[in-house]
Design a protein around this nucleic acid. Structure first.
Lengths: 194, 194
DNA sequence: AACCATACGGAGATACGGTTCCGGTTGTCA
DNA sequence: TGACAACCGGAACCGTATCTCCGTATGGTT
């Protein structure tokens, strides 16, 4: 019963592994559409699984959201690394930013990321991945600053606020996405070196 | 029973009038602190009144919020008119903006104003007052633009997004208000003519 | 193929918050 | 001051959403 190595993943039964995957997939889709309004029963139904199964894999809704967030952070870190290959520092950062905002427009979870703060547990689960992402983005920022194409006053610490603002505006855009786009241009423009 | 004029306020009993006032006061305080998390029972308790009484005056939570929002819009319109007396157009607009953001920092309802969208009923109640406010602010903006101190591309239509962004950031600031302040400076700076 | 630990399903326990209802109270007016 | 309409209080109701429990099913192993 005692596990020799704590890192060794305990072997799961095949159906358990399959169900877990299904649950995560279903949750990703639903949360992207509905954000925190998504309910566990919906996730279970979409995954063709009972609620109990969902809760066996994720003891709490926050845990499930944390899992999704962690995956998204990983993905965005990947995106940032891809843009980092761009020779021009500003182009790299701007590209990353635009891609992030575009992702937000397709995913309510990202728009609401900040309000999950109330559900600190979810962010806590994804903290490690968030730090990695933060590190990669920081490199982009420093490079653009070194090039002189980005405001000196902007730092990695300002990114959360930037994301928060963009998420709120995109989320609230409702039937006037044009205004959100205008606002995003405004934000990006404000980051350029004067 | 039939009222002759629809504008004539139906005479209320003295206690009803007093209670209504108490309810609004209590709600203002609580919503400022807790935002939409405030519950009707709390409002009733703080007002020294039964829940039933709250519901007699405001048939729904959204109606109560609408009342509060309307009052806030009126107040802000007043603030804008005061700043409009400033001789310099930019100073007037910047002053109004900073005062609005400062109010947001003290009032969760204002931070969340945008998310009440889900509760359209509340915003609907305050629509008239919102339009008045919008008109006054528009004058400030046009004046500053005529002076050449504000970006030509900024219009009254961008104000909701601006407020939404600021509200989100201020609301999410948590234990790091400094970062919200930095972001606000960034926003304001971006409105200036290049 | 028989065993059993692991995993499943989903009814329902639990919690919570808005809203309703009605027996009792109070302001107002004659 | 008596009568009545308006108003009050707050227990109860109801819908909703998370999470638990337990009888049943199944993958893996001998």
């Amino acid at each position: 019963m005692v596990r020799v190595s704590s890192t060794e993943p305990k072997p799961q039964r095949a159906d358990a592994r399959r169900n877990r995957e299904r649950i995560v997939d279903a949750a990703r889709e639903l949360f992207a559409e509905l954000g925190q309004a998504t309910q566990m029963d919906d996730v279970a139904r979409r995954a063709n699984v009972g609620v109990g199964t969902v809760y066996r894999h994720f003891p709490t809704k926050a845990a499930l959201v944390g899992e999704l967030l962690a995956a998204k952070f990983c993905h965005h870190a990947e995106v940032a690394r891809r843009w980092a290959q761009e020779p021009d520092g500003w182009t790299a950062f701007e590209g990353f930013l635009r891609e992030s905002f575009a992702a937000m427009a397709q995913d309510v979870t990202l728009q609401q990321r900040v309000s999950w703060v109330s559900d600190g547990a979810a962010l806590e689960r994804a903290e490690e991945e968030r730090l990695i992402l933060s590190g990669v983005v920081d490199e982009l920022i420093e490079r653009a600053k070194a090039e002189g194409t980005m405001r000196e006053t902007f730092t990695i610490d300002d990114v959360p606020a930037l994301m928060c603002a963009a998420g709120a505006v995109i989320g609230a855009q409702g039937r006037t996405p044009v205004l959100a786009d205008r606002f995003i241009e405004f934000l990006i423009d404000g980051l350029r070196a004067p």
